[in-house]
Design a binder for these strands. Structure first.
Lengths: 199, 199
DNA sequence: GCTTCTGGCTAACAAGATTAGCCAACGGGG
DNA sequence: CCCCGTTGGCTAATCTTGTTAGCCAGAAGC
C-alpha cells in the first residue's frame, strides 16, 4: 500500500474545498477520506476528529478571509477602501460558503488559537478601513462591530438564500456600502448630521 | 402503557426549548424523546424526521421573532420604533439561541412554507419601522436588507461569542441603532448628508 | 541491512436516525 | 356496554457515521 503523502494541512485544505462543494453540513469523514484517496480511519493520523477538523477549517477560512480583505484594501482609503473590503469579504463568503460556515459557532480556546489569530487579522483589515474615515477612537470598536455585523449578516443571509424577495441583491449590497460610508463619514464629523427631532 | 398525549406542536415546542438549553447542534432525537417522556421511535408518529423537525423549529422561531418584533414596535415611530425592533430582535435571539440557529440554512420550499410566511411577517414588522422614516419606495427593499443583515449579523455573532475583544456589547448595539437611525434619516432627506470629499 | 517511526489498513465498536411490525388505548357507533 | 378501527405508543432491528484498537508495510536514519 503506497503512502498517500498526506499531512494535516493537505487534509484540512481538501476538507475545506469539499465543504464548499457539498455544503458544510454534508461534510463527512467518509466523503473526505474518499476525496483524499484513503480509508476513513487514516484521517485520524492527521486530525484529531471532526471537532478538531472543524476548528482547523474555520481557522483556515478566517485566515483566507483576512488575506482577501487585507489585500483588497491595499492602496485605497475612505469609501474606496470600505467598498473594496466589503466586496472582498462578501465574495469570499459566496465563493467559499462551506468553509465560512465552519467559522460560525467556533469559539477560540485562547488568544493563541489560530482561529483567534486569524480573526484579529481580519479585524485589523477592517480597522485599516476606519483609519481613512478618521473615526474617533471612542467609536472605533463600535464601528468595527457594526461593519462586521453588516458584512457577516448580509453574506450569510445571502449564502443561506435568506433573501427571498426579488430586488437585486448586488444592488442592495452596493446600497449598503453607500449607507455605511455615509454613516461613517457622519461619525467622523457629527456636526453635519441631520438635525434630530426632539426625539 | 398510558398515552403521552403528544401532538406535532407539542413535540416541536419541546424541541425548540431543548435546543435553547443544550444548543441546536446537540439537539438529538433521543434527548428530545426523553424530554417528552417517550421512546425515540415514537417521535416519528408526530414529525417526519430530523430534517422535518428542524424546519418546524425554524418556522416556530421565525414566527415568534416576528411576533416579538411586531409587538415591540407597536405605538412607536421613527427612532423609537427602530430601537424597539432591534432590541426585541436581539433579545429574542439571545434568549432563544437554539431555535434561532435552526433558521440558519433552512431555505423555504415555496411561498406557502410556514417558514416563508413567518419570514414575511418578520419583514413586515421591519417594514413598519421604515414607514416612520418615510424611506423612498426605491430604497425600502435595500434598507430592509440592511436592517436584517445588521440585526442578524450582530445577534448571531454575539450568540456565537464572535466578538472576542472587550468593548461593551450592549453599548455597541445601542451605537449601532443610533448609526442606523442617522443613516435612515439621511436616506429620507439626502440633501442634509455630509458633502463628500472629491474622493 | 537493521531499526524505528509513521501512515496506511482491517476489524470492531458506539451513537444516533430511522424503519418494521406489534399491540394497547382511545373514541364512536351499534 | 361492547366492538372495531384508528392512533400512538413500544421493541427489535438496520443503516450511517464517527471513532478506537491493533496490525503491518514503507520510508528514513544508523
Amino acid at each position: 500500500m503506497p503512502r498517500a503523502g498526506l499531512d494535516p494541512a493537505a487534509v484540512v485544505a481538501a476538507a475545506a474545498a469539499l465543504a464548499d462543494e457539498v455544503g458544510f453540513a454534508h461534510l463527512t469523514m467518509g466523503l473526505l477520506a474518499e476525496r483524499v484517496g484513503v480509508r476513513t480511519p487514516s484521517l485520524y493520523k492527521h486530525v484529531g476528529g471532526q471537532e478538531d477538523l472543524n476548528r482547523r477549517i474555520a481557522a483556515l477560512a478566517m485566515s483566507e478571509a483576512a488575506d482577501a480583505v487585507g489585500g483588497a484594501v491595499q492602496g485605497y482609503a475612505g469609501r474606496d477602501a470600505l467598498a473594496a473590503a466589503a466586496r472582498a469579504f462578501r465574495a469570499f463568503v459566496l465563493e467559499h460558503p462551506g468553509r465560512y460556515a465552519a467559522t460560525i459557532g467556533v469559539e477560540p480556546a485562547d488568544r493563541d488559537d489560530p482561529m483567534a489569530v486569524a480573526s484579529r487579522r481580519l479585524l485589523g483589515a477592517f480597522r485599516a478601513v476606519l483609519r481613512g474615515y478618521e473615526t474617533p477612537e471612542s467609536d472605533v470598536d463600535h464601528a468595527l462591530r457594526m461593519l462586521r455585523s453588516l458584512c457577516h449578516g448580509f453574506a450569510t443571509l445571502q449564502a443561506a438564500d435568506g433573501f427571498q424577495w426579488s430586488a437585486d441583491i448586488d444592488e442592495s449590497f452596493e446600497w449598503l456600502i453607500a449607507f455605511a460610508d455615509r454613516g461613517l463619514r457622519a461619525v467622523a464629523a457629527p456636526e453635519v448630521s441631520s438635525p434630530a427631532p426632539p426625539r
